[in-house]
Design a protein around this nucleic acid. Structure first.
Length: 825
RNA sequence: GCCGGGAUGGCGGAAUUGGUAUACGCGUUGGACUCAAAAUCCAAUGAUGGCAACGUCGUGAGGGUUCGACUCCCUCUCCCGGCACCA
């Protein structure tokens, strides 16, 4: 090993390593160990094992053309640390990786550059794989999967057919969010502030027949089962919010002088006496039937106008609410009052029943509307606060006949019972969650394996014919007609009905890219199985995922979809557990050095592979862990990286000096052990930043000279322990140093060190002495010292005496091992 | 508007259960080594007063609880993330 090596300006494969001269040769070391790990198959999970299992999962990357982002390794490195630790702790660890490769960016790139998406994907994966492998992550590459591989999407299609057969996949004509730029229908979840999540362009409404999956059927379980999992609290909250359960009641209003009844949903049935009008959403089916002759023209115009508006326009609260009268009245069932029926676009067809009872005295929106159109406002809840505007909180019911004097909660109960008994309503639970729009009019996705026959309707293609291969087409460009590019492939589209043999047409829409990622964690368990998506016994051994980490941007949709998907498969008997992820964690974004998000256009992107070449994978890994709290966003800093690199060099040098000075070794267990204890705890608590800081502190401590001015070299056992615990963070260097110590095999094959409690007991500790809460001195004493001993020690301190002089000691607070506070008056 | 999370030196950030605020890293300053530079090593580094011992102030703002508050409570300001006419 060349310890003092001068920058090599001659070898073109070695980029000069900034300003370091005395350094360890990271490139040589890292390639060497990566090769050895690979040859030994060290990180392959075992299918048959008596060991306890540990399944660590990271969100598999989308192999974009931009290459690996520095944010990717943040997640991968953190879980790598845990995976490596678990292996050393004796677990059979599954830490897999794959590619979520269907999707728009690749398709768009392919269109622009006139290439096949398949080819682009293959290239991108190769780049990503190469970049990832430089990092020395302990992935089990033998289980690599790719959602665009027919052997994989065969099972995505198979699962879609299971949804279809179970009646959970259905086709519905509906107004969809249409992105004119991407020429694609978007799920509600993909529309952000009325704009396309992908391109940022404004979204329009279009009528389109779409495949839907009835995720709403699982809303209650998706919510309730959050009880049984360990997610970061904010993630749980997001899931809860997205599912959006509200309890309330449905109330039936008879339309005056007509057959029709209007059912409304309300969370405040207690305010029924205060309802002064009813509102229908413009899309409500009753709109066309009940409107009076005189109002027909006005209503038709209003409804047409509302249709044109995007959701963004409609949702814009700044804008004034609008509406039109129907000229017809409804009967309030509780007091038989006639109240007008209005149509207004502040009521959404997609939630509840698409109709509301308006209680302007106790709902902000109804209040604003009533003010504008001069509708009556009847107060029925007395609030504790004397508000002039409308009061939306709880209180005591008034002006409400038999409900008077009851609390809001009690009144809700009473009125709901009353409505139920009179068959005028019932209690009801509504969810914000809506069914999943599962069709995309694009090429680069899984073909939906259904055939439409004039006679038989929609027919699944036989399972043995799966996968239904995505055919090569001439043009990938999406069409403005709303048809998938597949629709122009007549050879492919025209087929025969599997049931009756008549000519039939294939579905030309493809699946959204959420599909493949909704079940990938199952495929890792048995990635090469061609008889089933995974063997049940293997699923039983490995599931659920013990630890799942990814970005906060996927804690709404992907998490919900995949939980739902897994639950469905579980109900069908294909998966043994109902909840796929035992524990879910999330990392924060890595921002650019300037504090902004990294983006190509800003030119502030950091390329991981360049950092690896220049500073080494170990330095990059450790720096990514060191930069800040794992769940929080942190700015990238090259200076910080240099600090970590210096630490690694110090470690390298320390071990080298240690080898050369066997005579200077001594038992420093009492010094070393507390640091190791902290590292151990920090890893388990996801405090990787302080774990790295602890290693640095330990190193600094060991580099201090002892009282005789000599280097402090730890004993052999202690050094081995340190290297074992360093291994998950800097695996290449740890193994290299391990080998230099003359040890055989890999550090990864060692047992994770146990912390010896006896070594944690300190002989003396430093304690602060306060007088009236202000620190005046520090004393050294035994951690078990009693108050009297502490007082004696304190009184020897001149500074303490100074503050006690002439004062009466009123009180002494002594917390053993923590503080001595003398209160004087 | 609602929900969640924050605010600590020049910078990124530590601080266990309320117990010496600023660990660790970066930067800066001074010194050693060198013809010189880089690297490395040593020292200093919250503000302020003092030759020093030491003092005063100090964790977004204001108040409170406590022997003692970055930590708990109340009020407010600002920032970040999520949701949003969901009845």
């Amino acid at each position: 090993m060349v310890r003092f090596f001068v920058q090599n300006f001659f070898d073109p494969t070695l980029r000069p390593c900034y300003h370091l001269v005395r350094m360890y040769h990271h490139q040589e070391i890292e390639t060497k160990w990566q090769k050895r790990w690979e040859e030994a198959g060290l990180f392959h999970a075992k299918d048959q094992s008596d060991l306890p299992k540990f399944y660590a999962l990271i969100e598999f990357p989308y192999p974009s053309g931009a290459g690996l982002h520095i944010g990717h390794p943040r997640s991968y490195t953190a879980l790598d640390v845990i995976a490596r630790k678990r292996r050393m702790e004796g677990y059979n660890v599954l830490y897999p990786i794959g590619w979520d490769a269907f999707g728009l960016p690749t398709e768009n790139y392919a269109i622009k550059n006139k290439r096949k998406p398949q080819d682009v994907t293959t290239e991108n994966i190769a780049t990503f794989k190469h970049q990832l492998q430089m990092l020395g992550l302990s992935f089990d590459w033998s289980r690599e999967i790719n959602t665009t591989d027919p052997a994989y999407y065969k099972w995505t299609q198979w699962m879609f057919l299971q949804f279809y057969k179970a009646g959970l996949a259905y086709k519905a004509k509906m107004a969809i969010n249409w992105c004119p730029a991407c020429k694609i229908g978007l799920a509600n979840e993909e529309v952000v502030n009325g704009c396309c999540e992908r391109c940022g362009g404004k979204v329009e409404k279009r009528e389109k027949e779409q495949w839907m999956i009835a995720i709403t059927k699982y809303a209650d379980r998706l919510l309730a089962d959050l009880e049984n999992v360990n997610y970061l609290p904010k993630i749980k909250k997001q899931q809860e919010h997205w599912i959006g359960r509200s309890e309330g009641a449905e109330v039936m209003f008879q339309v005056d002088g007509r057959e029709e009844k209007i059912t409304v949903f309300t969370t405040r049935p207690d305010t029924l006496f205060g309802a002064t009008y009813v509102v229908l959403a413009p899309e409500h089916p009753l709109v066309s039937t009940i409107v009076s002759e005189s109002q027909k023209a006005v209503v038709t115009k209003y409804v047409a106008l509302a249709k044109q508006k995007s959701d963004l326009d409609r949702a814009d609260e700044e804008k004034e609410k609008t509406g039109v009268e129907t000229g017809v009245f409804a009967i309030n069932p509780v007091n038989n009052e006639k109240i007008p029926i209005w149509i207004a676009d502040y009521v959404m067809m997609g939630y509840g029943t698409g109709a509301i009872m308006a209680v302007p005295a106790h709902d902000d929106r109804d209040f604003a509307f009533a003010k504008k159109y001069e509708l009556p406002i009847i107060e029925v809840v007395r609030s504790e606060l004397n508000t002039q505007a409308c009061w939306c909180g709880d209180g005591v019911v008034m002006n409400s006949g038999f409900l008077d004097g009851f609390s809001t909660a009690k009144a809700k109960e009473k009125i709901t019972t009353w409505l139920t008994n009179k068959q005028l309503g019932k209690s009801s639970v509504q969810y914000k969650l809506r069914d999943w729009v599962f069709s995309r009019q694009r090429y680069w996705g899984e073909p939906i394996p259904l055939v439409h026959c004039e006679k038989c309707g929609w027919v699944p293609i036989p399972e043995q014919e799966l996968p239904l291969i995505l055919p090569d087409v001439e043009k990938y460009e999406p069409t403005d007609t709303g048809e998938s590019p597949l629709a122009s492939m007549e050879d492919w589209v025209n087929t025969i009905c599997p049931t009756c043999g008549a000519s039939a047409k294939r579905e030309t829409d493809t699946m959204p890219n959420w599909a493949g990622s909704s079940w990938y964690f199952l495929r890792y368990i048995d990635p090469h199985n061609d008889q089933a998506f995974a063997d049940f016994a293997k699923l039983k051994y490995w599931m659920p995922v013990d630890l799942y980490n990814g970005g906060m941007e996927h804690t709404n949709l992907h998490l919900l979809y995949s939980r739902f998907w897994n639950k469905f498969l579980c109900d069908q008997g294909h998966v043994p557990v109902s909840e796929p992820y035992l524990r879910r964690y999330s990392h924060g974004l890595i921002m650019a050095e300037d504090g902004h998000k990294m983006s190509k256009s800003k030119g502030n992107v950091v390329n991981p592979d360049e950092i690896v070449v220049e500073y080494g994978a170990d330095a990059l890994r450790m720096y990514i862990l060191f930069m800040g709290p794992f769940e929080e966003p942190v700015p990238w800093s090259k200076n910080g990286l240099v600090g970590v690199r210096r630490f690694l060099e110090k470690a390298d040098r320390y071990v080298q000096d240690w080898i050369e000075h066997p005579e200077a070794r001594q038992d420093l267990g009492k010094i070393v052990e507390p640091y190791l204890k902290r590292v151990n705890e920090d890893i388990e608590g996801f405090h990787f930043n302080t774990a790295v800081a602890t290693f640095m502190e330990l190193m600094n401590r060991l580099l201090e000279k002892d009282s005789k001015g000599k280097m402090m070299f730890v004993g052999e056992k202690q050094l081995q322990k340190i290297l074992c615990m360093l291994c998950p963070f800097a695996p290449h260097l740890a193994n290299e140093l391990w080998e230099r110590l003359g040890e055989k095999g890999f550090v990864e094959e060692q047992t994770w060190p146990t912390i010896e409690e006896a070594l944690l007991v300190q002989d003396t500790i430093e304690m602060a002495v306060q007088v009236n809460g202000k620190v005046r001195a520090t004393i050294r004493l035994s951690p078990n010292a009693i108050e009297e001993e502490a007082m004696v020690a304190a009184f020897t301190e001149g500074n303490v005496q100074k503050y006690l002089e002439g004062k009466e000691v009123r009180k002494v607070i002594y917390i053993q091992g923590k503080i001595l506070n003398i209160v004087v008056g």
